[in-house]
């Protein structure tokens, strides 16, 4: 009888093990079967400058969402003379978290409660706005499909934005409804052709996000909102989330690192090398208006051989 039981257990184990292996293989398919159009490196080089900026007659126009020296929100700043321009419709978003542009020059911005909730009431935080490339007008683009609502004990909704040219997707991180003892955040993938959420990564509190095509597939990197850790998750060829995530690095363990969190993740290509820049902030699910000039940016270089990001140095924002 015991022999039968043990043999049964072994056979059952064989099936379970086989099933798990099959599932995992499915998740990491991109490691070995990349799309024919797949190209290693930066995925947002198709982004265009908004058309309206060309009409502003600025010498060195820059998109500025820093919350300093103006009443908040988005401005276009001429870096040559510090002159700023703001469309009257832009005030509706209040202060801002992340922003990004698409392949047509449209801009997308996420609201962020900063000094107080007066310009950023909680009920208007879990959404993103679109600024038309031609008219410069800001309009509500999409409310995140979540039952979790921002409130005065967690007034945050959408946070980080990142556009991927390969799949015409906008990724959005949201902290709406997260509780002190439980993560309820979501990272959404929005298809900009259909203006719908097509995939989402649940129960994850993330702020900064960024997509990069590694040697072994497309990955979305994300900085946790509660810890100084940066993780990544594998995306399939359509940019959908898979189940396969991995720890990348912790800001605290870098030379000169802090116990802060990653608020922005950017990728670029310089001198034939791929670079990642991670900007930090102190975050505790409370308003962010602290005048701390000591915020850092951490710089990494991608090693193709190892499929890893190597830390280089930090600099101050």
């Amino acid at each position: 009888m015991i022999k039968v039981f043990v043999l049964g257990f072994l056979i059952l184990s064989l099936f379970v093990g086989g099933y798990l292996l099959t599932i995992q293989n499915k998740n990491i398919t991109n490691d070995t079967h990349l799309a024919t159009s797949f190209k290693l490196g930066v995925v947002n080089s198709c982004r265009k400058t908004p058309s309206f900026i060309h009409t502003l007659s600025m010498k060195q126009p820059a998109i500025d969402t820093k919350q300093q020296n103006h009443q908040g929100g988005l401005v276009i700043r001429d870096m040559s003379n510090n002159r700023i321009w703001q469309d009257e419709s832009w005030t509706k978003s209040g202060y801002l978290a992340g922003f990004d542009r698409d392949n047509k020059g449209n801009m997308y911005v996420a609201p962020l409660p900063y000094v107080s909730l007066s310009l950023n009431p909680p009920e208007l935080q879990n959404q993103i706005y679109k600024i038309d490339s031609s008219t410069a007008k800001m309009q509500l683009y999409l409310k995140m499909p979540s039952e979790e609502k921002p409130n005065n004990k967690n007034p945050f909704g959408t946070m980080g934005l990142f556009y991927d040219c390969d799949t015409n997707s906008l990724y959005v991180s949201s902290l709406a409804g997260s509780l002190p003892r439980k993560e309820n955040g979501v990272i959404y993938q929005i298809n900009l052709s259909t203006n719908t959420v097509v995939s989402q990564f649940n129960t994850i509190d993330a702020i900064g996000i960024g997509v990069f095509n590694t040697l072994k597939g497309k990955r979305l990197y994300y900085g946790l909102a509660r810890k100084p850790h940066v993780y990544s998750i594998l995306l399939d060829e359509n940019g959908n989330f898979t189940q396969s995530k991995r720890f990348e690095f912790s800001l605290t363990r870098l030379q000169g690192g802090d116990t802060t969190v990653a608020k922005k993740i950017q990728f670029s290509k310089k001198a034939n090398k791929f670079h990642m820049t991670v900007k930090e902030t102190e975050f505790g699910f409370r308003l962010l208006a602290e005048n701390n000039p000591e915020k850092k940016k951490y710089h990494f270089i991608y090693s193709i051989i190892d499929d890893k990001w190597s830390y280089v140095e930090y600099s101050y924002e």
């Binding site: 798990l20 998740n27 439980k182 995530k245 991995r246």
Partner: peptide, 21 residues
Amino acid sequence: MFFLSSCSSEHNGSNEENTYE
């Protein structure tokens, strides 16, 4: 099979309950 299914450096994280103390 057990080794492959359990020892990967990447893991399934979507259904984890992320709680804090």
